[in-house]
């Protein structure tokens, strides 16, 4: 059954009531894996403290969606394939809700399946009842697990320049993550949290880096004084983003704030 809820950049509807979801699970027969139209907005962290994985997954969907290891028969991590154990791609539920990631605004559940496969790959049994093996981690390692690429060295945010992360006019051309140690909770930058690094604002003198909290629509977004009129920083169908929308987890952060509040940046490449 194809989900009829479609993503709209300025008016995202909360699709927590998927028609395909029942107390026995959710199904997604016609997700973006059919045409590889993965969107970063599809990825939303749920109840599990695995921000590092969800941020990494979102980063790959952002910068290198073709590298996502989503296949008809399963999900690939490095060189290993985790078979899709249920033909209809059911997602286990707990009290009627998916026990892992949240379902994004487009209603697709591939991130949930991906997350479950990751748990299986990391050695979990039944993911809904034994989730410890993916609780907490390192975003850079998750990037490597997802893509099979090679990790960059850890980059100190204090050394950030516009050329630190390979990019195309500011748009990160490699999957990248940034993480905090202490963060700045007062400004909605949680501690020990991982963000997807999307790029830097393509001004002549870049003043902002663009990040995404993997909690997506439920994420707090730090205050910013971005006043540019072109509010749509990157418009790529079907997944345009808008960092002035404070309900998608995507935000532009002043470089100086980024340098002082974040603990590390890293990326993967071939």
């Amino acid at each position: 059954m194809r989900n009829t809820k479609r993503y709209q950049s300025q008016n995202i509807t909360f699709a927590n009531q998927l028609p395909a979801c029942t107390p026995n699970g959710c199904t997604d027969q016609t997700g973006p894996e059919r045409d590889q139209s993965f969107c970063i907005q599809d990825v939303e962290q749920g109840s599990l403290p695995d921000c590092y994985f969800m941020a990494a997954l979102a980063s790959v969907a952002w910068a290198d969606p073709n590298r996502l290891g989503v296949f008809a028969t399963g999900y690939k991590f490095k060189r290993d394939m985790v078979a899709t154990t249920l033909p209809d791609k059911k997602v286990a539920t707990y009290n009627g809700s998916p026990c892992y990631a949240r379902i994004g605004p487009r209603g697709f559940i591939w991130p949930l399946l991906y997350e479950r496969a990751y748990a299986v790959w990391r050695g979990c049994g039944n993911p809904c009842t034994s989730m410890n093996c993916i609780v907490g981690g390192a975003g850079m390692q998750a990037l490597e697990d997802i893509t099979g690429y090679t990790k960059s060295p850890v980059i100190q945010p204090g050394t950030w320049t516009a050329a630190t992360i390979p990019n195309n006019n500011g748009f990160a051309s490699v999957p990248a993550v940034a993480w905090t140690t202490n963060g700045d909770p007062g400004n909605k930058i949680p501690a020990d949290h991982t963000f997807s690094y999307l790029g830097h604002y393509p001004a002549i003198n870049p003043a902002y880096v663009v990040l995404r909290n993997p909690h997506g629509r439920l994420a707090p977004e730090p205050s910013t004084n971005v006043t540019r009129s072109d509010t749509t920083w990157y418009s790529r169908a079907p997944c345009p983003i808008n960092f002035k929308n404070d309900k998608d987890g995507i935000f532009a952060l002043a470089v100086q704030t980024f340098k002082s509040k974040f603990a590390g940046i890293g990326y993967v490449r071939k």
Partner: peptide, 13 residues
Amino acid sequence: VRQEGNIFQLVNL
């Protein structure tokens, strides 16, 4: 050692 993944990071409810 520390990890990324604050269990209380689901904020802004």
